[in-house]
Amino acid sequence: MSSFDTANYPVEFQVNGETRSVRVRAADILLYTLRDKLGLTGSKSGCDNGDCGTCTILVNGLPIKSCLMLTVEAVGKQIVTIEGLMNSRVQDAFVQYQSLQCGYCTPGFIVNCQGLLNVHPQADEETIRVWLESNICRCTSYEEIHNAVKDLFAPKNDGKPLSSGS
């Protein structure tokens, strides 16, 4: 092993609106830096190869699977984790529609859906469906999740959602 592989480098980036500094190896994955060095454990490790979406975070407003991103790639970027979305519209919709079972996948879905709102604030049914395909729920809460997300884009009547929920 070369000395480069074990060297620690200082990096600084924005996480949930705060400047955070850590020392990392060049090969450190952002998911594990967030969890192990910054204590932000809401993003979960699922597959570690970008298939399941449990580790989804926002990088400059776009959903990214943090298991596929090196920590050093986050330098100068705005990172938002599930902890930064507490009491958000998306989180409220997931609670209203009981869009979770075990809850393991929920943070990744909520963050991904916030990214959808950021990128496509007028998303149609097909766009919602395509975006939800990037996350896996092993407990099959898909209908509830889909209803919660659809409601985020539904026109409102007197402050009440038009969709009935489950």
Results as ranks from 00 to 15, higher is better:
residue 4 F to P: 06
residue 17 G to N: 06
residue 20 R to C: 02
residue 23 R to Q: 15
residue 24 V to I: 15
residue 24 V to F: 07
residue 24 V to K: 11
residue 26 A to S: 15
residue 27 A to H: 15
residue 28 D to V: 08
residue 28 D to L: 11
residue 33 T to A: 04
residue 34 L to A: 07
residue 35 R to Y: 10
residue 41 T to M: 00
residue 42 G to D: 00
residue 43 S to G: 10
residue 45 S to A: 15
residue 46 G to P: 00
residue 49 N to H: 13
residue 50 G to T: 05
residue 51 D to M: 08
residue 53 G to V: 00
residue 58 L to S: 03
residue 62 L to K: 15
residue 63 P to M: 06
residue 63 P to S: 06
residue 65 K to I: 03
residue 68 L to C: 11
residue 71 T to V: 10
residue 71 T to E: 01
residue 75 V to W: 07
residue 75 V to K: 07
residue 77 K to A: 09
residue 79 I to L: 00
residue 79 I to G: 00
residue 80 V to L: 02
residue 82 I to T: 05
residue 85 L to N: 00
residue 89 R to A: 11
residue 89 R to M: 12
residue 89 R to Q: 13
residue 95 V to K: 07
residue 97 Y to T: 04
residue 98 Q to H: 12
residue 100 L to Q: 09
residue 100 L to D: 02
residue 102 C to G: 04
residue 104 Y to D: 06
residue 105 C to R: 00
residue 107 P to H: 03
residue 109 F to A: 02
residue 114 Q to D: 02
residue 117 L to K: 13
residue 119 V to M: 11
residue 121 P to S: 09
residue 127 T to E: 14
residue 128 I to W: 06
residue 129 R to T: 14
residue 132 L to F: 04
residue 134 S to T: 11
residue 135 N to L: 05
residue 136 I to W: 06
residue 136 I to G: 10
residue 137 C to V: 09
residue 137 C to D: 08
residue 138 R to T: 09
residue 138 R to Y: 06
residue 138 R to M: 07
residue 146 H to M: 00
residue 147 N to T: 01
residue 149 V to Y: 05
residue 154 A to F: 03
residue 154 A to T: 13
residue 156 K to N: 13
residue 157 N to C: 00
residue 161 P to N: 10
residue 165 G to Q: 00
